Simulated assay, not measured.
Amino acid sequence: MKQVVTFLLLCICSNAYSQDDNYFDRLQAVINSNAVFYNVDGIDITSKSFNSKFNEKDLKKVLRTYKIKKNDPKSKDSELAVDNYVYDKSEILTENLKLNVVYYILDNNTKVTIISFTYTKERDLVFERQFVNDFLTEHIPEKTFVSSSIDSIEFAGRKIGLGGNCRWMNVRNMQCPYYGQMNWSIHKTIESAKQNVEEQFLVTKHKKGGKVISEKSITIIFEGKETIAKSAVYDVTGVNSLLVGMSGAKTLTIYYVAEEIRGRFVSCVLSFWNNDAINESGLPALLEEVMSLKQ
């Protein structure tokens, strides 16, 4: 079974939040075992709790799970209601692109909870704090959560039936073996959506191992709306990955699109291997559900 390398479909974005921003309207989450995955405005968030005490001995074991080291930058957020540590493992990918990976280690009653944020450019401390507080006070609405099994999805206000052949790779990131993969996010503004797909492309372009061998702007029909997308072909022959090797694929075709759909600002990245089941349209079945190539 094939899947697209995780870094190629990483949803990442930076955005500004106010305390009264109703981001719940754009938030989606899925529970997988004892972890919860969230996505909003292109920001990937994960929460997981451990039956550990908030002391030095127990925290060592928890931090080891996330490869957080003693010398990693650490601080405390005094505006949170619980004892905490904040680890910043951000890294500069290129001159104009910074990947932020931030971990909040929280004393959550009798447990230790870790909430991680992954997005690009400058950290958004206001949103991080807002989400952590909403999590701790159990203010995240039940409607945010979707089933971990996929027979259908809600895509920007439209229900799409898929059968039982697909699986979540992350929240709003789904893969259908031999039929393609796509991730998407709902944003507060169209500018945020456009920024997100551009940053996803830059992450792909500068990832070590493979290489982008072609890129161009093309006209597509996305959810019935004519728009411009970025198309790229990524050579994976240099990627040292067991999954890539097992697939037998040599290239990955990727489309990056940002558009307003049914009153929602959507960023979406769609992809397929060169040896997937490609139809006469030039696309595999999953991608055909939301887009077509303009002839």
Rank of each mutant, 00 (worst) to 15 (best):
I115R: 06
D107W: 00
P177V: 10
E142N: 03
K159C: 00
G161L: 04
K111E: 14
H139R: 05
T120Y: 13
R123T: 15
R129A: 13
M174N: 06
Q181M: 07
S149C: 11
Q130Y: 09
K89R: 10
V86C: 09
Q181W: 02
S149F: 13
V112L: 02
Y104H: 13
I160G: 02
M169S: 01
E138P: 15
T118F: 02
I153Q: 02
S149T: 05
S147C: 08
G164M: 09
A156L: 09
F145V: 01
G161R: 01
N109V: 14
Y179Q: 14
N96F: 07
E142S: 06
V86T: 05
K121L: 14
S149Y: 07
N165D: 06
W168Q: 09
S147Y: 11
E95F: 07
L97A: 06
L97S: 01
A156W: 12
N96H: 11
P141V: 02
K121M: 11
T110H: 00
D88E: 07
W168S: 09
A156V: 13
Y178F: 06
N173E: 09
K111P: 15
T120D: 15
E122M: 09
G161P: 01
L93A: 01
E95N: 11
S149N: 12
G180D: 13
Q181D: 03
V101K: 01
Q181F: 01
Q130W: 06
L97M: 05
S152P: 04
L97Q: 04
Y179T: 05
M174V: 10
F131D: 14
D151L: 08
Y85S: 05
L136H: 06
S148H: 08
G157V: 00
T137E: 12
N133W: 02
K159T: 11
S152Y: 01
I140N: 06
N173P: 14
T137F: 13
R129P: 15
S147D: 11
E128G: 12
S149R: 10
C176P: 15
R167I: 00
I114F: 04
E128F: 12
L162R: 01
F127M: 09
N108V: 03
T118W: 06
R158S: 03
V112H: 03
V132T: 11
V112A: 02
I140K: 05
R158Q: 04
V146C: 03
Y85W: 06
I115E: 06
C166M: 12
P141H: 05
D134V: 10
S116G: 06
K111Y: 06
L136M: 10
E154I: 02
H139F: 00
V112W: 01
L99T: 00
Q130R: 13
I150L: 10
E91N: 11
I140P: 07
T94Q: 11
G180C: 14
M174K: 02
Y85A: 01
R123W: 08
L99N: 04
F155S: 05
Y87P: 15
T144Y: 01
F145T: 02
T110E: 12
F155T: 07
Y119M: 04
E154T: 03
E122Q: 13
T120G: 12
S152D: 02
K143V: 07
F145Y: 08
V86D: 03
I92H: 14
L93W: 00
F155G: 02
N173Q: 08
F135W: 14
I150Y: 01
E95R: 12
